[in-house]
């Protein structure tokens, strides 16, 4: 394995015709961590990754691996492994031959092909034509391609799309393992919930622009904490809250009190002699912060 390199985007912009797909995007991705590259569909994630990999020419700016552009890497597949979409293969070629072609091109030993197919759980289907593969199997084959050169940097575009629950659990563990080995792991997704269990850092873009950058916990802003409280005698509870000056709204499972302190509500109810049936703090969803950042609701 080659060591993980720092990925660096410096003022990347890209225009397609008159449309700006990416605007002045700058961020770095550190080795040893899983970085989620998040944003709604059409935010410019795939374009940014394709610029990083030299497949799309940036209108301005540079994207590098340890300071070197992709096309200048002496051994690209041994340095960076990328899985972009689930359909980059000839349907009439077997999985083994598909990987074999690129192993030859990159000067990698042919034994590596079966190793990576085994690693992603496709060894039994190695001699099958890829045209007959399910979407999940194609995702795994894409991942096998990324791993061919045992690279120190992994760039994966929506790797969870199309995976079954067992596959999703597998890839989460896989991403963590890769980062634990010191590799740089950049994973894009349009759904925070898909990757929030595996990422350390998040880079969030919307409409081609960077909107948030930081550790996952930085999304847990908790600006407006809420606690759900419910009683068999809801009127008495409401009166107690009003008396204490705590505003609330009526939710489906109880009253949504505008406080992040359940103990306060418990004490209030106890002193007012109101029996409680529900009392728990509403976790301010990371997803909510995410949606607020990307402009709300445009996840489709």
């Amino acid at each position: 394995m080659s060591t993980g390199a720092v990925i660096e985007f410096t003022s990347i912009s890209k225009r397609f015709g008159g449309v700006a797909a990416v605007k002045d995007l700058s961020f770095t991705v550190e080795p040893g961590r899983v970085t989620g590259f998040l944003g709604p569909n059409g935010a410019g994630k795939t374009t940014s990754l394709r610029i990083l990999l030299g497949l799309v020419a940036a209108s301005s700016g540079t994207a590098t691996f340890g300071g070197v552009r992709y096309r200048d890497l002496p051994h690209p597949l041994k340095t960076v492994g990328a899985a972009l979409e689930a359909a980059s293969f000839h349907p009439g070629r077997t999985a083994r031959d598909h990987l074999g072609v690129y192993a030859i091109a990159a000067g990698l030993p042919r034994t590596r092909v079966m190793e990576v197919l085994t690693l992603v759980g496709l060894a039994a289907h190695a001699a099958q034509r890829v045209g007959g593969y399910s979407l999940g199997m194609r995702q795994r084959l894409g991942l096998a391609y990324a791993l061919l050169g045992d690279p120190g940097v992994l760039v994966l575009d929506e790797p969870i799309n199309g995976l079954d629950p067992e596959g999703i659990r597998w890839i989460r563990g896989f991403l963590r393992d890769m980062a634990a080995e010191g590799r740089t792991v950049l994973v894009s997704s349009h759904l925070l919930s898909e990757v929030q269990q595996s990422v350390d850092d998040v880079v969030i873009i919307a409409r081609g622009e960077l909107v948030h950058l930081g550790p996952l916990s930085s999304l847990d802003t908790d600006a407006a904490p809420q606690t759900i409280v419910e009683s068999p005698d809801r009127e008495a509870l409401a009166a107690a809250l009003t008396a204490a000056g705590i505003t609330f709204s009526i939710g489906r499972t109880g009253l949504l009190a505008a406080t992040g302190d359940p103990a306060l509500l418990g004490h209030l109810a106890f002193t007012a002699g109101v029996e409680l049936s529900v009392l728990h703090r509403q976790k301010a969803g990371l997803e909510d912060s995410f949606l607020a950042l990307v402009g709300g609701g445009h996840t489709l």
Binding site: L53, G54, L55, Y70, R71, L73, P76, L77, V80, A82, L84, E85, A87, S88, F89, H90, P91, Y102, A105, A106, Y145
Partner: peptide
């Protein structure tokens, strides 16, 4: 044309960027 049609230019140019 098969390289365009089956999008195999992507893995091809990743393996050989020149």
């Amino acid at each position: 044309t098969g390289e365009f049609r089956h999008q195999t230019l992507t893995p091809t140019f990743l393996a050989t960027p020149r």
